[in-house]
Design a binder for these strands. Structure first.
Lengths: 110, 110
DNA sequence: TCATAATACCTCAATATTCTAGGTAGGTGA
DNA sequence: TCACCTACCTAGAATATTGAGGTATTATGA
């Protein structure tokens, strides 16, 4: 697991990115991030649900309920057109951020 | 400038790294980060000074005053041995974090 | 001379995100 | 029946950052 503060702010980027692949529900997103990151990103439900609600309010994602024959109903989320373009922005911001950070922390081992 | 939240948690890493090059004072660190990052990391004094105090309390850095013939005295910081080893940890954490993030956000453009 | 700006330190309230710890409810298996 | 998993949720505490303010010294230019 990473430092809590370091990871702050990357949740929305990850959620939007995963939703470009397929519609997903909250509980699924938690498990998916955990699995795909080899347990490095163990985002908690207490973090994800409020984050989803904010993204929905911003109209970057939208939701629909799907009843299950087995188990509780699921609230699926799908990314909107606006969400897609915000994702593009966030993604390029991420790459710029990494580039700047790397140039700053790379040891001057001459 | 980057998103406020994305950058959270990288301040201590940057401070420790810069101090491996030479001892610096707070005001200098602010300007230095701004310059080196092409104005992408405009860390504010209200962020840096408390961050320095925390690092000092953790004994990752230590300070000494230096009077100037011109202008106000400067509080210089130097990295400690413990700070150096924490920096190593934080640096490798950073690289792991970037790797995991990249593997998650890289579009599956097959 | 006097006002302004730069240097150099500092604190505090507001904001945003995350986590911990709880809660509700449906369904499964021993 | 009881424990567990699925699946949703919220509230309070902790943390980092920022904006806005403060103090003090020195330099600059009108």
């Amino acid at each position: 697991m990473f430092n809590r503060e370091l990871v702050k702010g990357s949740t929305s980027l990850l959620v939007l990115q995963l939703l470009t692949e397929r519609d997903m529900y909250g509980y699924e997103l938690v498990k998916e991030m955990d699995n795909r990151s080899d347990h490095n990103f163990q985002i908690k439900e207490g973090t994800l649900y409020p984050a989803l609600h904010k993204l929905e309010k911003q109209e970057y994602i939208e939701c629909y309920w799907e009843k299950q024959t087995k188990g509780p109903a699921r609230k699926y989320y799908r990314i909107t057109t606006e969400g897609q373009s915000i994702l593009d922005e966030k993604t390029s911001e991420w790459y710029r951020y990494v580039q700047v950070m790397n140039s700053l922390i790379r040891r001057n081992e001459s």
